[in-house]
């Protein structure tokens, strides 16, 4: 029981962090059709910026300033980079973000060095809020959860209740049509790209000290974010939310089971010989498949239902 409750809480926290990262990406992908490889790099930049700012002005200032800076940076990247390559097609755009991710990592190495940063949870949030069964539940997790839920609510309201939000939603499905109506589509693109980057930056600010801040943090989290937006369906916030929670739960709970195929066979009273074919296959446990499951899910989803859970159209 204890294991289930704690795992459920953990997957909620991690899932919401994933959601914050993927919400921006899914909007960018949905609107512009660009698979933004640099998205996780903005997440990394967020953590590094936050570390630097918190050295001078404390965590709370960093929490506000860093995402704004990242958002401006993202908008600039869209304006001066992506827009230039747009005319060469999607492949060029995608490769541009690929190159950008590469350059951001190099620059981070250059400025902050190769060693992981000592970016820690602020002491005002470094205590245990309650004890659950035998385990402590740190307040910082609750704080992360609160921020990400807040972001989801704000985003949802923004997209459904404001004029800009409605235009964004319209250009998700009918980008040409929105342009025809006289809206400045490139500017909306810039806005969404900047906003999405800012969200990734915010995820970096609160995720960097919870996990770790090092030059490899983008590569560590990058691929999984793609999985989230594919499964959720691109352009869909609700989809991204469901997929984030789904993947976090899947990965968290897979850890708890150490059954292997040998155990399955044992149910049917079959025993393997001493030297079976594919010796590795039989001893793989459920807990080992954690990293595999999201990708398996993604490939299956792409083949059977390329729209994703909540998506409206294919790429």
């Amino acid at each position: 029981m204890e294991f289930y409750v704690i795992s459920l809480l953990n997957s909620l926290v991690f899932g919401m962090l994933l959601f914050m990262l993927s919400s921006g990406l899914t909007l960018i992908f949905g609107m512009m059709g660009v698979l933004n490889f640099a998205h996780a790099s903005f997440y990394m930049l967020g953590a590094y910026f936050a570390f630097q700012i918190s050295q001078f002005a404390g965590f709370w200032t960093a929490l506000v300033i860093a995402p704004i800076l990242i958002g401006l940076l993202g908008a600039a990247v869209e304006r001066f980079g992506l827009r230039t390559v747009h005319k060469h097609g999607h492949v060029a755009e995608l490769l541009f973000t690929f190159g950008l991710a590469f350059m951001i990592e190099e620059l981070i190495l250059l400025i902050w060095g190769r060693v992981a940063l000592n970016y820690q949870v602020p002491s005002s949030l470094d205590f245990t809020i309650f004890r659950l069964f035998e385990s402590d539940f740190p307040v910082y997790r609750l704080f992360m959860l609160a921020i990400s839920v807040f972001i989801f609510v704000v985003l949802y309201l923004l997209l459904t209740k404001t004029r800009t939000g409605i235009i964004i939603q319209a250009s998700l499905t009918h980008p040409e049509g929105v342009g025809m109506l006289g809206h400045n589509v490139p500017r909306i693109f810039m806005l969404v790209f900047g906003g999405g980057s800012a969200l990734a930056g915010l995820a970096g600010v609160i995720g960097g000290n919870y996990l770790m801040t090092s030059p490899s943090m983008a590569i560590l989290l990058g691929p999984i974010v793609f999985v989230v937006i594919v499964i959720g369906g691109m352009g869909s916030l609700t989809g991204a939310l469901i997929a984030s929670l789904l993947i976090a739960t899947l990965q968290t709970f897979a850890v708890g089971y150490d059954y292997s195929l040998i155990d399955l066979l044992a149910v049917f009273n079959i025993e393997l010989g001493p030297e079976p074919w594919f010796p590795d296959l039989w001893r793989i446990k459920v807990e080992n498949t954690g990293p595999l499951l999201p990708y398996l899910l993604m490939v299956i989803m792409l083949i059977l239902r390329p729209k994703g859970i909540m998506g409206e159209r294919e790429s």
Partner: peptide, 10 residues
């Protein structure tokens, strides 16, 4: 297109 690229990634 992009779907193919994503499948290859997965």
């Amino acid at each position: 297109g992009t779907t193919f690229a994503l499948i290859s990634l997965g």
